[in-house]
């Protein structure tokens, strides 16, 4: 089965097949299948409790799937001969022993894969923690711990990077930094899978998105396609609204008249509307294709699958 996946021209690096994970009676991941390819950032999106972290833990071999499997480069990660050179992961920034200094924490990890002190110093500089290398991790803010976790993921110069909610706790400068970092890692041909519950964040970083809810895959698409799919209407303003509406409806469009003026046109795209108006000698003041924001698209997609919701929260 793997050989068929590999014979096609695009390499599949992460492959999740029919993955199911049950914790007691709770179904965290439900027959989830997807692949992640190298060369761009893939966003892994879903509300809290959708199964993103569980899936990532299964990919890394930390949790054993109830059924199905998760492979990296066609094999289980637990059998990787050079783990840190193959995969770097940041799952939980708090998963560090607070008593160690930043440098010693990284050195513990580096030594297990024969990586030297020079590389530790280099990644600490890269993530901006050079100045606190000798400080105990217990005193770090969440943002600093995120940077330390990213440093750990980068130690082995890996081909595959998994980041679970990496922007949590980062300041705006830090968010921009990690966005650029993830993109540059992908541009170098690496495979980057990054989870988030914020569509707005992914819209700026990811090329492709996997949207999950209640442990199932809802959508696997590119950001571009998602924007296309949720294109809603074209908003038109004209001094001669009524005549324009008649012309457009004659062409098969559905036209609504919002209370604050203008026309909301469905079923025709902006160039065609402009042509028809021009043909009929009608002046246009505004012609705006409108899409639902990605945020709206995401909320609509995951609405059914939100696990935790405040009582009476607005949808």
């Amino acid at each position: 089965m793997c050989s068929s996946a590999r014979s096609v021209s695009v390499v599949v690096v992460i492959e999740v097949r029919e993955l199911t994970k049950r914790y007691g009676s709770a179904l965290a991941v439900d027959r989830l299948s997807f692949t992640v390819k190298p060369g761009h950032v893939t966003g892994f999106l879903g509300p809290n409790g959708a199964g993103k972290s569980t899936t990532m833990r299964a990919v890394l071999g930390l949790d054993a799937p109830t059924s199905g499997e998760a492979l990296i480069n066609g094999r289980h990660y637990a059998r990787s001969p050079h783990p840190m050179h193959e995969v770097g992961a940041l799952l939980d920034a708090g998963a560090v022993h607070g008593g160690r200094t930043a440098a010693n924490h990284l050195l513990c990890l580096a030594r297990s894969n024969g990586i030297g002190r020079a590389r530790v110093t280099a990644v600490l500089e890269q993530v901006g923690l050079g100045g606190v290398a000798r400080k105990r991790v217990a005193g770090f803010s969440l943002g600093m711990k995120q940077r330390l976790g990213i440093a750990a993921a980068l130690l082995g110069d890996p081909e595959v990077l998994l980041f679970d909610e990496p922007v949590n706790g980062l300041d705006p400068e830090g968010i921009r930094w990690i966005r650029e970092l993830m993109r540059s890692l992908a541009d170098e041909g690496r495979t980057v899978l990054v989870s988030s519950h914020l569509m707005s964040e992914m819209a700026l970083t990811a090329h492709r998105v996997l949207v999950v809810g209640r442990g199932r895959l809802i959508v696997d698409t590119t950001i571009e396609e998602l924007e296309q799919r949720y294109r809603r209407d074209v908003f038109v303003r004209s001094p001669d609204d009524r005549e324009l509406a008649r012309v457009l409806e004659a062409e098969g469009a559905r036209v609504e008249t919002p209370p604050d003026g203008g026309l909301s046109v469905h079923g025709l795209d902006a160039p065609r509307i402009s042509e028809l108006a021009f043909g009929a000698g009608i002046l246009l003041h505004q012609l705006t294709p409108r899409s639902a924001s990605l945020e709206d698209a995401y909320l609509e997609l995951t609405d059914e699958s939100v696990e935790y919701r405040a009582e009476g929260a607005a949808r």
Binding site: L60, P83, S112
Partner: peptide, 18 residues
Amino acid sequence: SEYGSGMIRTTLTTVPRR
């Protein structure tokens, strides 16, 4: 100390052979 802090998950990503 590893299980208590969660460090074990970081450790096992760098040494997945348990």
